[in-house]
Design a protein around this nucleic acid. Structure first.
Lengths: 217, 217
DNA sequence: TATAAAATTTAGATTAGCCTAAATTATGTA
DNA sequence: TACATAATTTAGGCTAATCTAAATTTTATA
């Protein structure tokens, strides 16, 4: 029991569970997957039958230990492939997601582990997200939103919250990427915009941008 | 219209058509795909609706130009991935097929072409089969079966006809692989077995083995 | 060339994953 | 706390890809 659809649900539930405590609601998964709530209910039942989630009618789901393992395994593959695409196949960080969504479903332990070795056991993908290792353990940075970085304290960009192509390309244009040192020079009270120093240039960004960039202080 | 199943049928029809002239029969595809003939008939109709094959009831199918293109594109991906698995991920030639069967369905022109570039535009896969280039053109060796190699004339192993794991591992044990120089020293009339020189060692092989190895004289 | 055997197709059913519409349950607010 | 609204589930269908069993066509042979 590991269809493409099943795997996508497990991943979606895992990601949804990161956001908030407690159970994951039908509608939130429906939105992520792009399916109707009734379809999600069907799948919740099926996942519960296979002991991948705990499901109580009208109460949503939580992943079981098995469910978490499967989800992490898919995330591991997704992020390894993203790393490969960027490091060896000239993909940019805004292009990798769609292809990795396909590659993450390839079933071969040897492939996954050899890819990991070939990439020299990377700990983070091109967006700064942690890659579960073979034991499915991942190192998490203690990162904060750029918005919460104290004035004049240097941080380094270690990730993004919004992974959309639009946002990533916007960051490319502003020459902000993983590893870029960032300093907040001034907060404009009027419209919450920020004057920052990013790498060698000073520039202005909106509050919305600042709450989608992670930095390590 | 390009489901996983559709792609597998196109590939199977392409390969079946290599073997013999004329149309490809329902049963031959049923055997390759591992489906019942009635299912194959259904798919033949669907492929015909999409102008990927010419289909006449009770007469089998032939691929259209479009069908050939799609088949070659899948074969291109399959063989590029096999090459990658062997050259960079420590797979042996008997392990790659099953994984490449999955990878060949990944849809991304950029991925395929960048993989091609990364591998430095290989012309043949680990089994010696030609890889269609971006324009879907492939270089074919003028190879013959080892069985048909004249006595005491050196040939070089350039491919295999039987791609089964069992046969490939058998060749590994006999230290025969792509590039191995081979000479027929003696043909035993009694049981058609052959004494050959392969690389540095002399050994005996059966007729069956000799008709599954391709050599270039 | 009749006719038996083999190949192929048709008819009707099944399953997974989705849908819509209607019914049910939970939630938030007056 | 009652009740409107939102969330969720149920019931019943749909499609793609498969199947079995029966009918039809082709082929091979006596």
């Amino acid at each position: 029991m590991q269809s493409l659809s099943t795997e996508n649900y497990l991943k979606a539930i895992y990601h949804a569970a990161q956001f908030r405590e407690g159970t994951v609601a039908t509608t939130s998964i429906a939105n992520k997957i792009g399916a109707k709530p009734s379809s999600v209910t069907d799948m919740f039942k099926k996942l519960a039958d296979h002991n991948l989630v705990e499901y109580e009618k009208y109460k949503g789901v939580t992943l079981t230990t098995d469910g978490v393992k499967k989800a992490l395994h898919i995330i591991r593959k997704h992020r390894l492939w993203e790393s490969f695409l960027v490091s060896h196949l000239n993909f940019s960080w805004d292009e990798v997601h769609q292809v990795a969504e396909q590659l993450e479903h390839i079933q071969s332990e040897k492939l996954t582990n050899e890819l990991d070795r070939f990439l020299d056991y990377p700990t983070h993908d091109p967006h700064g997200d942690p890659i579960p290792n073979r034991a499915l353990f991942m190192k998490t940075h203690n990162k904060i939103l750029l918005l919460d970085l104290p004035l004049n304290k240097e941080g380094v960009c270690v990730g993004v919250k919004d992974n959309s192509s639009d946002f990533l390309r916007y960051l490319d244009r502003r020459q902000i990427g993983i590893g870029t040192p960032i300093l907040i020079l001034h907060r404009e009270e009027y419209d919450q915009s920020l004057h920052i120093q990013a790498g060698n240039s000073t520039l202005m960004i909106t509050e919305k941008t600042a709450e989608n960039i992670y930095v390590k202080p």
